[in-house]
């Protein structure tokens, strides 16, 4: 992906064009919103759109800066996500050393494996070796209270926030030599489709959402939002198929699977938040909540996208 290529320029012009349309829409809604409730919704919408500008600029800048920069930026994203995850779960005094190892040994090593492209170790380091070593560090402190729960929480945090997210920069090392925007296009397709699905579910839900799917977990998610959002995001995926090795219908199916999985990722992490009595994971991204509030759908779909690409389309 080079800024000098016309295709890149057109692509970026479209992305920023969509953001500009969103900002103009937000501006018009701000002028027309009457009731206090509508104004508050529009304020949140505009905060979300402003944050989208920042996130898109960071993402595109990162991808243009190359695979090392991508590994570093996604390592930082994992770090911020894990920080929110562990902050929100109860820990005990005896977990201090194993959590230190999770943040400062396991996380950097996983992204070192991305950087060095050691795929074999990349796939097993957290599910096997971190799984074995962290409970050993924990058990040395001699505190058996809630031991399984504590070990499981740390492992979950690492799987969701580090292992899953690390698949995104690893996509840059998949062997596809002839993609028009390079492997960066694979990541752009993935993020645009899955995040687009989140946004479109929100829009469809606001426009015609009636029937809640899981009122006890996430009251704002509706059937109308889910179906409208996933189908329109899948169409978006079909339109963007040229970024990937897929044909249009294959990209539609791929996008559909990723969006459904992304939806369930959001639902699973909502259940964790609900159990802890919190609404958002943090306050980092204005209008959205924390890093994990934005990454939840990507976490659950990233490994599958990676595997589908390498299994069905290996060059």
């Amino acid at each position: 992906m080079k800024l000098s290529e016309p295709l890149t320029q057109h692509f970026l012009a479209s992305v920023f064009g969509v953001l500009a349309i969103a900002s103009i829409t937000g501006f018009i809604l701000r002028k027309t919103a009457k009731s206090e409730g509508a104004q508050s919704t529009v304020r949140n919408l505009n905060a979300r759109i402003n944050s989208w500008w920042i996130m898109v600029v960071i993402l595109i800048g990162t991808l243009m800066a190359g695979s090392t920069a991508s590994a570093l930026v996604f390592a930082l994203i994992s770090f911020l996500a894990l920080r929110e995850f562990i902050t929100a779960t109860p820990t005990r005094h005896a977990d201090h050393r194993s959590l230190f190892a999770a943040f400062f040994l396991v996380l950097p090593y996983q992204y070192w494996l991305v950087y060095t492209k050691w795929y074999g170790m990349f796939t097993i380091m957290i599910p096997v070796y971190a799984f074995v070593v962290l409970p050993i560090i924990m058990v040395l402190r001699g505190d058996a209270t809630d031991f399984l729960e504590r070990a499981a929480r740390t492992q979950w945090g690492l799987m969701v926030c580090v292992y899953f997210i690390s698949h995104i920069p690893m996509m840059l090392h998949l062997p596809f030599p002839h993609l028009p925007l390079g492997n960066e296009g694979l990541i752009l397709f993935f993020i645009i489709v899955v995040q687009g699905s989140d946004v479109l579910q929100y829009v469809w839900g606001k426009l015609c959402g009636r029937h809640p799917i899981a009122p006890t977990l996430s009251p704002k998610k509706t059937w109308e939002g889910l179906i409208g959002g996933v189908l329109s995001a899948s169409l978006l995926g079909a339109a963007l198929h040229w970024l990937t090795p897929c044909k249009a219908w294959q990209a539609f199916v791929m996008a559909f699977i990723l969006c459904v999985l992304g939806f369930f990722g959001g639902l699973v992490l909502s259940a964790i938040k609900r159990a802890r009595g919190i609404k958002d994971w943090g306050t980092l991204i204005e209008g959205h909540g924390g890093m994990m509030d934005r990454m939840d759908s990507l976490c659950f779909s990233a490994p599958l996208y990676f595997h589908l690409l390498s299994y069905f389309f290996h060059a």
């Binding site: 920080r83 902050t87 201090h96």
Partner: peptide
């Protein structure tokens, strides 16, 4: 809130919670 988790009594190195 949480400072006793970030750097508890008896430890030298902090963990980066919020």
């Amino acid at each position: 809130q949480n400072l006793n988790r970030i750097l508890p009594k008896g430890h030298l190195l902090p963990i980066p919670l919020i």
